[in-house]
């Protein structure tokens, strides 16, 4: 499991969504990395990838709505970080659609996705928690 408690930001709603996000990225990563023959698991690879992608969008939308609700001052930079994250995923999805689900390319994507996710939640999102705490909110 990729999730670690140190990634918590101290806002229950967001922390629960982050755990779910890590779970879906872990499922995708485990699927692409298990010993099963690539052709035999291709449908499962595609399914877990779509499942992960859907949640990335849903979570980013929910997190941005929460930031608006609390008047988070860094919201524009954060939206830009979300847009770059989604763009990074979409660039790979485009490659897979055009060139097929090549195993080495998907492994490459999996390695990057894991790193992006840890950096985003472990660092960028921590600033939301710091802001909430500075306003005397829950944390």
């Amino acid at each position: 499991m990729m999730w670690k408690d140190k990634y918590k930001i101290g806002v229950e709603l967001i922390d629960q969504q982050h755990k779910e996000l890590f779970r879906r990225v872990s499922d995708f990563t485990e699927t692409i990395r298990n010993e099963q023959n690539w052709e035999d698991k291709l449908d499962k690879v595609k399914e877990t990838m779509v499942f992960m992608q859907e949640y990335v969008i849903a979570h980013f939308d929910a997190e941005e709505a929460y930031q608006e609700e609390i008047n988070y001052p860094d919201i524009e930079n954060h939206k830009e970080a979300h847009a770059k994250f989604k763009e990074g995923i979409n660039d790979y999805v485009k490659i897979f659609e055009e060139e097929g689900f090549n195993e080495a390319k998907i492994q490459e994507f999996g390695g990057r996705l894991m790193t992006w996710l840890i950096m985003h939640v472990g660092r960028t999102d921590q600033k939301i928690g710091e802001y909430v705490r500075s306003k005397g909110g829950q944390a």
Binding site: I32, Q107, M114, T115
Partner: peptide, 19 residues
């Protein structure tokens, strides 16, 4: 990082390292 055993430097490991 991944919580999973990785036994060789394949495309997954090398791209994560590069990132």
């Amino acid at each position: 990082m991944s919580g999973m055993d990785v036994d060789k430097i394949d495309s997954f490991a090398s791209s994560a390292l590069g990132e």
